[in-house]
Design a protein around this nucleic acid. Structure first.
Lengths: 118, 118
DNA sequence: CCAATTGTTCAATAACTTTTGAACTAAGGA
DNA sequence: TCCTTAGTTCAAAAGTTATTGAACAATTGG
């Protein structure tokens, strides 16, 4: 681990809700959930926002305890903290993601049929 | 019904999450959930915020589709829109409320053992 | 009618959040 | 070493949300 992350018990419900209440961040979390287990780097999300702005949103997600960012070379590998979130707030993440998946008006990443392998 | 409320299908996930991401509003929703079926007036929440500020937060909850406010005499009877929320975002409200109930650091209303009957 | 109760609205301010661009760091490849 | 890639940091600007007090409206009880 490289950057400051809260421990599981430091994760705060209102902060998590507020952080997920932003469409850009919700899109990031949705994509992470779909690709669970596969660590992703920031470039995956460049169609949601500028590089600088993404850095800001990804920091918010990390600081809230929603994601984990690990520095590997010049990349950040980002994963969902599903284990910790499920322990802390059972069912919350699943219901949020299911609700987001059901809403076609929300911004999304990697939703097209075409999937780039590398 | 008196004041403008969104219809069930107009309720937006990011807006609901953002609205619930405020500790004062979360406390209001929690209390409404505990007293489900019993319409409450604003005075119940006066220990959370000033009258003016409550009016603001209750309007946010109403506009997001989380609560319903009905004008009855000089009071507003406030209820949770559980039916609509459950239809739109299954499991979300329950997991949020369960998570909030598990967090003793959050502000709360009517948590004491003493319950005033009238 | 008068006063009290219940809550809203308005304008101001304070406090945050989001977005931006330019400058930066750190790693990796040619 | 130099260049590129990946992402951060910083300061400024823009936008939004929260909080306040004073003034208001509507209903109800005396």
């Amino acid at each position: 681990m490289s950057l400051p992350h809260p421990t599981a018990d430091q994760i705060s419900l209102p902060i998590v809700l507020a952080v997920l209440g932003d469409p850009t961040r919700l899109a990031i979390v949705r994509y992470l959930a779909r690709k669970e287990g596969v660590p992703l780097n920031c470039s995956k999300f460049l169609d949601l926002a500028s590089k600088t702005n993404l850095s800001y949103h990804l920091a918010k997600l990390r600081e809230a305890g929603v994601t984990r960012s690990e520095a590997v070379g010049t990349s950040r590998l980002i994963t969902l903290r599903r284990d910790d979130l499920d322990k802390r707030f059972p069912g919350l993440l699943d219901s949020v993601i299911a609700a987001a998946d059901g809403d076609s008006a929300l911004p999304a990443v990697g939703t097209s049929d075409v999937e780039v392998s590398a």
